[in-house]
């Protein structure tokens, strides 16, 4: 496990984290707060969409994001030989 190996691993990890945090920001601060009023124009069942993201949707996405990260990282650990 050379220093370069560790560097490349870290770089890929940071890339994943940034992408996932972008989605994290988009569903909560974006859909649930900043664009809430626009999204509220769309109705799904009894829910106005902006309201739904703020009180339901964002939380579901949070859970999915963590499990996606778990999978990505488990793969990455194997790729770089850091798996246990």
């Amino acid at each position: 496990m050379t220093k370069n190996n560790a560097k490349a691993y870290w770089k890929e990890n940071i890339k994943y984290v940034l992408i996932l945090l972008f989605i994290w920001f988009l569903v909560s601060y974006g859909a649930g707060i900043l664009f809430k009023d626009t999204l509220n124009g769309i109705k799904v069942g009894g829910f106005k969409l902006g309201f739904w993201f703020a009180q339901q949707g964002a939380m579901y996405v949070f859970v999915v994001l963590i499990f996606v990260y778990v999978r990505l990282m488990n793969k990455l650990d194997k790729k770089y030989g850091y798996d246990e």
Binding site: L20, A54, M59, F62, L65, I66
Partner: peptide
């Protein structure tokens, strides 16, 4: 709701 769950991400 978002504040107390989003922190786990």
């Amino acid at each position: 709701l978002m504040g107390w769950t989003g922190g786990y991400v």
